[in-house]
Nucleic acid binder design. Structure first.
Lengths: 357, 357
DNA sequence: CTGTTAGCGCGTTCAG
DNA sequence: CTGAACGCGCTAACAG
């Protein structure tokens, strides 16, 4: 039972050992705000090294009013999309010397709002929220939160709060257009999520409008949770019903993967008898079978932009990122050599070229 | 540009409004340590409500020497296994009113040790580490860290530090035995990970010993990173080489999923021409095709035990959890109705029964 | 220019 | 129920 908790070393210990005052230790540690003679500084650094001194973050936070911690609230941190997002946020934070406090709201409005309050009371320097609650609720809460807030993955700009998101409508358009034009489908069904409250989802809009613009007949819309299980069950409903669609756009990778399982179990060949495309483009979409053609969100860019937005303390901004079209096999394209993916930069209303051969 | 940062409300504001001293505010907020008259307390609570007062966590932490924050270090928080683990740790922490600081070491020894130091200097109340570094390095570092440390997912008990993990050897035995006995394979290849340094991996041991005990001939062992890509590339090597195995045990879901992709691309039928089993049992293993037979780690139990261990401040303990055998299709079993999985509790050396029909 | 002293930030808690 | 000391680090003000 060795003592894992040796006496905590404070500034005073270092000062004593180095034969200086505590102020000098501080000046050395922070490289300012006052200069210290080179040899004195060296002595202090040596003492710090010997004692293993690390400044007490709580004291520092109290004095400075800044904790060096960012908070992130997501609906479900084990969902691969949010897991990848959290990792990228963490990386962006680490790059700036910040740590990341992660909380999952479990898609529960009540819990989400409690978590936001809790993180705020922990004096995080900024709060990134991928909320399930719609705009009214958000803005109402935001003004009471004494912490900069940025809204991640928001489907719409929200007044008074910075938002960062992907262009869901453009992504949906690209995918649906691909199925219509390249593969000649007459229409495309939608497997949509259910989690959002109070939003109009860009993906749904994009799907709807694209069909309309192409004069495509109405197609089934199935709603199911943003999960593999949700996609599976929604998929079964979609595929077992009469008028089984020949092409489906899933609003998330996870749902598409559930849909694939449903298709496999029903003996429906993908892409032969059923073309599938999905929104998100997490790594899992590349390794399921068949690999999914999808619109990939630029997660790292989104994370970086969100961290920037929440830290810069300026007027709220609303950034929308393009998505990338990843052509793989699930849509009926040939697919390509392993590891090499044909990518096309999305621009809204972008015209998709002829099928790869 | 509404002001998101109204003046921060402190205890003093509340005290003034309620007409009491700051001490009373504290007693009311913390329900102690001294009693407060009921009507006074009511007045204080009203003032708190009106002003929206929230205690400053930094000041509190400084005074109490406890932050209410746990730290978690994993190699890669976007890996589904670690993502699920992190989520469960977060849940266990939230249940106790603690927040969770997550950091990813990116499988980098240097970074891992920096992150541990950083979290420690932030006065986390406990540190959970799923380390890539082996025991010597850990113990060396542990004694310098002024924070309780628990080792997650450790392959072996480590002296002086609490460890919590699954019984990797038993899991490997179950899976390999299943292939040998139930499906009559003569031997089983291993697709092993590479990340661990300085460990003897229980999964590898279990595989090796089980083969030996059954007098099975030597089988290929392929090493690849713990990732889908690693599994894919290792899988290609394994499947393209001469003496292609008829059964493979993958040391993680992710690798098995990469292996499945390799098999699909090579036109090798699973389970017809190739049986696959895997260790981990994350949700993804249920939704790939075919669904993976695997040894599932009890992630929630592990997380809960780890949080307990790191908080209870007693002598180091070493807990090892059984894994559950999930029979699905990738091994050659028939599989079952969707959502209903046949589960068998693992006990080391457990004998597996006849094949399900 | 180099170094020291002392007050402050905010919540907790003991002596009064 | 109040007053005040304390936890630790930061930095303005001051001294040599």
């Amino acid at each position: 039972m060795n003592d894992q908790h040796p006496r905590v070393v404070t500034r005073a210990d270092v000062a004593r050992l180095a034969g200086v005052s505590t102020a000098v230790v501080s000046y050395v540690v922070n490289d300012g705000p006052r200069p210290v003679a080179a040899d004195t500084a060296a002595r202090v650094r040596e003492a710090i090294e010997m004692l293993g001194y690390r400044p007490n973050a709580s004291a520092r936070a109290l004095k400075l009013g800044t904790t060096g911690v960012l908070g992130l609230v997501v609906p479900d941190s084990s969902n691969p999309f949010y897991a990848e997002l959290a990792l990228e946020v963490e990386r962006s934070a680490t790059r700036r010397g910040l740590a990341l406090l992660v909380a999952s709201s479990n898609s529960d409005l009540e819990l989400e709002s409690r978590l936001i309050q809790d993180l705020a009371s922990r004096q995080v320097d900024g709060l990134l929220v991928s909320a399930i609650s719609g705009p009214p609720r958000i803005t109402a809460g935001a003004s009471r939160i004494p912490v900069p807030l940025t809204y991640l993955d928001a489907q719409l700009p929200v007044e008074g709060v910075s938002t960062v998101s992907s262009d869901g409508e453009a992504g949906a358009r690209m995918l649906v257009q691909h199925l219509l034009r390249v593969h000649g489908h007459s229409t495309v069904a939608l497997l949509m999520g259910t989690a959002s409250t109070g939003w109009v989802d860009g993906r749904e809009l994009g799907w709807q409008r694209t069909l309309r613009e192409h004069g495509a007949p109405d197609a089934p819309l199935e709603r199911a949770p943003f999960s593999r299980k949700g996609g599976y069950e929604g998929g079964l409903r979609l595929l077992r019903g009469r008028g089984r669609p020949a092409a489906v756009f899933a609003s998330s990778d996870l749902q598409a993967i559930g849909l694939l399982r449903a298709a496999h179990e029903l003996g429906i060949a993908v892409p032969g008898e059923l073309a599938v495309v999905a929104y998100d483009g997490t790594e899992e979409s590349e390794y399921c079978w068949p690999p999914l053609t999808c619109a990939r969100q630029r997660i790292a860019d989104i994370a970086e932009a969100a961290v920037n937005a929440v830290l810069d303390g300026r007027a709220p901004t609303h950034r929308v990122f393009d998505v990338d079209l990843l052509i793989r096999r699930s849509c009926g394209c040939t697919g390509e050599e392993p590891g090499e993916l044909r990518t096309r930069r999305a621009r809204p209303r972008d015209r998709i070229g002829p099928p790869p051969t």
